[in-house]
């Protein structure tokens, strides 16, 4: 996260500003971002006990997601036609992708507050792109714990699901989680831009971000009707965990989509990122500040 180049989601689309000064143009921007990151680490250190509490609390959130799945399997042998081991692969992909995107981009959640209070003005008058600034200004390092836990679930589930490993599947198990991160990052950014148009939209974005996390924690066969169509394919959440998991497990899709769909995850993620970048650029022009 120290370099804008490794930002997920639409960040690469927001080009760093071109400096007029001849020397050290590129390193200058990096230096600026690094300084922002350092400053924010220092201000977090001002609240040390809270930091520890947050670390613990954030693991807790993901733990309970997994516990919920385990409890559900306590009352049924199959969920939507999937066994516990298979379902855990889906949970692992989803938790890791969401937790990582939340760490890197989830901060954008604060945009509605910035927009409502006009604090966003201060971000806009600085010579750095607005999105990386917002993300770095308060990078929630405490969420690291959640990423680690998500990764642990992912590793444990794919190693115990009896996957028949091929070179392709090895590639997929590496690429799919990253695509999921990009995808969730794009979702975070896109939904946050709603607040440029609807200032009091409050927790609305949660319905898609956290809703998406819950949605991707279960096989899409669980859901029904237009709700499934909308979330799984309208918004593309099926490509975060469900289809990649099918491809890893070598299962045919009960809903009838061909097997290669599991490999489409990176493509879907890139499309989502492009949409997010566009939404951000258009949205920022609708920012209306507040009366002084």
């Amino acid at each position: 996260m120290a370099e804008p180049g490794t930002l997920t989601g639409p960040a690469p689309a927001v080009a760093p500003p071109e400096d007029e000064r001849p020397a050290g143009r590129r390193s200058g921007v990096l230096g600026a971002y690094r300084a922002l990151l350092g400053a924010q680490a220092r201000s977090q250190a001002a609240y040390r006990t809270s930091f520890v509490v947050d670390l613990v609390g954030n693991v807790g959130a993901t733990v309970f997601d997994v516990v919920t799945v385990l409890v559900l399997f306590g009352v049924t042998r199959e969920l939507g036609g999937f066994t516990l081991h298979e379902a855990l692969v889906i949970v692992g992909l989803s938790s890791f992708a969401f937790a990582t995107a939340d760490l890197l981009v989830g901060n954008i959640e604060r945009l509605p507050r910035y927009v409502r209070t006009g604090l966003f003005d201060a971000v806009l008058v600085r010579p750095l792109a607005a999105l990386p600034q917002l993300l770095l200004m308060d990078l929630p390092l405490r969420k690291v714990s959640r990423v680690v836990f998500g990764l642990a679930v992912l590793v444990a589930s794919v190693t115990s699901a009896g996957i028949h490993w091929t070179a392709g599947r090895v590639a997929l198990v590496l690429v799919a989680p990253l695509a999921g991160v990009v995808f969730f990052g794009a979702i975070f950014v896109t939904t946050s831009t709603v607040s440029f148009y609807w200032i009091d939209s409050g927790e609305l974005a949660n319905s898609v971000t956290y809703g998406g996390r819950d949605f991707t924690s279960y096989p899409v066969t669980v859901y029904g009707g237009w709700f499934r169509a909308l979330f799984a394919y309208g918004m593309g959440f099926a490509f975060v965990s469900y289809h990649p998991a099918l491809a890893l497990l070598g299962r045919a899709d009960p809903l009838g989509l061909p097997g290669w769909v599991g490999w489409a995850a990176p493509g879907v993620a890139l499309v989502a990122a492009a949409i997010a970048a566009l939404a951000w650029r258009v949205g920022i022009r609708h920012y209306r500040s507040t009366g002084s």
Partner: peptide, 18 residues
Amino acid sequence: TNTVFGFLRYYIFLAAAG
């Protein structure tokens, strides 16, 4: 937001009922 989560939970609980 409550509605979206309503859909999610309804389908998940229903799946648990098998």
